[in-house]
Amino acid sequence: MAIDGQKIIHAVMEGSRYRDAKGIIPLFGVYLSLFSVRYYNKLSFEFETTIKDTNPYNAETLLTDAAQECGYATFHGIRNSREWEEIVLPMIEKPEDQLEGFVAVAVAFGWGDLQIVELVPNERLVVRANESYEATGYLESYGFSNSSKCYMLRGVCGAFMDLIYGEAYPEGCFTFSAIEEKCRAKGDKFCEFVVKKSFKKKSFF
């Protein structure tokens, strides 16, 4: 049975309308917030520009690792949540189907129209995005770039493979790493992320 992404999207949209008395949205095992992508883009791109010449840390690595650690924790929470059990689990027939479920949730979160292009189990994942808010935001604010700019999606794609093929949580984080080989911010037609086994296991986080 194929993953029905629209069901997941519907659940996220309906779920996000639940607000407890504290204005906190507990959903899928995490606390969700909704806010303008302008905030995230300004934060990421000004951070990158500011520390480029003055700090030993590499902005690209820091931003990507932040997203990968987040994605790893978030989607682990998601696949252990009541909502996942009720809505997604019935649609899963093999481990790789989880990836489609993760992608559907990411789309529901407004991160872009992600699609799985290629999967070699435990080796390689290729994900494509046509409307990444990161690339769109960069183009609108800065014009074309010489390098890829979708750090959040890049980290999240790595986390997807960590969760499916890495060691049991929480040991599997950074087993894989992603490179954004194509990016609309560079003038490509779409953004494309290639995930492979990583040689590093350590991160700032």
Binding site: S33, V37, F47, N55, L63, F109, G110, F204, F205
Partner: peptide, 21 residues
């Protein structure tokens, strides 16, 4: 245009900014 993000990402960004900058 908005996006949903979880506390892991929001706090990771904050922590990273505070530590590095």
């Amino acid at each position: 245009l908005i996006a949903m993000h979880c506390h892991h990402y929001n706090i990771n960004l904050q922590h990273m900014l505070e530590i590095t900058m």
